[in-house]
Design a protein around this nucleic acid. Structure first.
Lengths: 225, 225
DNA sequence: CAGCGGCGTCAAAAACGCGTCAAAGAACCC
DNA sequence: GGGTTCTTTGACGCGTTTTTGACGCCGCTG
């Protein structure tokens, strides 16, 4: 059974969605604001998130980023604003689809099927991984266990997140640049060289012979647990 | 660089998209109807298909089904009709997203990024094959099971991929050179000799008597599982 | 049986990609 | 406003990959 997390602060919408989804045999969790949405996602591990923008406590894009830090769960955004800039921001932050209100329930359901169809099971990691002697918690962005204190910069976090989200998989440098630096980047491989070296220096036991953050020459990088 | 196949019968839309996409550093192919779209997709292996409904020769849903029969390439549907039933039909047929005209170019671009982001790592190509003692996973570009660790270079991967794409079939040297090295190559058979030898050394149990990577003298090469 | 085309192999040159260093902006905090 | 951290850029050495040329073997053919 597919678990859905519905994030919305308007009770009547939540209620309507809950009824419709339950009738379609979805398992429904709800959260009224961004903070509880992030908590619920980390706790219940939904298979799909339906996120209304315009939450009372935080910007919608921030919620998306908070989720994308450690999970690739499909996110469908609902929004009252049809503005193109909002859509672009949400999609580039990591949302999978964007529906403007008012919307038909059957359209929402079809889009839910479309995004869940793509998500491969068993591909995900939890919010924590281990590299060398240090454990990394993406949901709180904390490092623990290293001999001496280590901190990561935002870029370093983002790069590590994208690598760790698909453990064992080869990720092309082009895609890493697109994801971490933005759509207009794609050839600046020196950025990757620079930041991979820094991640290795901070996390690997022997940065010269990395065991987890591997280079596949001319193809990309790979994280192995 | 991401390859996009634009399927539309209206020349001005095709032209506008081509200009916009090329400016964003996409590689653009176009097809004016469903039949040529299916043919182009099979031949050029795009990373993304932008499909306008209302083609002259066949129903849009049929094109989607035709693609989904053998590829998981992301499909974004453009349509003039906002009807909910059309959306549901297209999405359930296998489309990844559905945009109604008129649409903003930046929204289309954002949605393109969203669907390619999810599909990226080697979603094409059959999952795994076995050569000798080692199993080859093309989606992650990993080799497992060999006695001692083996890695392949990009050229080796590409060559092996083209051979393994048609198991048991004879592939001409000219065709291999065109596919792996590029359109301006076709006679440099020494490249093939060199790289086939390297593949055999790395994968075959007895490189001198290959069981899977076979030579058909004066014709080409053949991969048998 | 000599000639020949095609293949596997070896070895060296050329090109490429990576890690690294160094330093100039940019953003941020006090 | 000054200092610090972070990001962006350019450049260089080195190892690996790719390209290139050449040689010997084998089977086929005349």
């Amino acid at each position: 059974m597919t678990r859905v997390l519905v994030v919305d602060d308007e009770p009547q919408i939540v209620r309507a969605l809950r009824i419709n989804l339950k009738a379609r045999r979805y398992e429904v969790e709800t959260a009224p604001d961004g903070a509880s949405a992030l908590h619920a996602a980390a706790h219940h591990r939904p298979d799909l998130v339906v996120l209304d923008l315009g939450l009372p406590d935080m910007e919608g894009v921030e919620v998306i980023r908070g989720l994308r830090g450690w999970t690739g769960v499909p996110i469908i955004v609902l929004s009252g604003r049809a503005g193109s800039a909002d859509k672009v921001a949400a999609l580039d932050a990591g949302a999978d689809d964007y529906i403007t209100k008012p919307f038909g329930v059957d359209e929402l359901l079809a889009r839910m099927r479309a995004v869940t169809r793509r998500a491969q099971p068993g591909d995900e990691t939890g919010p924590v991984i281990t590299i060398g002697r240090t454990t990394v918690d993406f949901s709180t962005r904390t490092l623990t266990g290293g001999d001496h204190e280590v901190r990561l910069t935002p870029r370093e976090w983002e790069l590590l997140e994208h690598l760790a989200r698909h453990p064992g998989k080869l990720i092309s440098q082009y895609h890493l640049l697109q994801e971490v630096w933005g759509p207009q980047y794609g050839t600046e491989t020196n950025y990757l060289r620079q930041y991979m070296a820094r991640l290795r220096r901070k996390l690997e036991i022997d940065p010269a012979h990395p065991r987890h953050l591997l280079t596949e020459p001319a193809m990309g990088y790979r994280f192995v647990p």
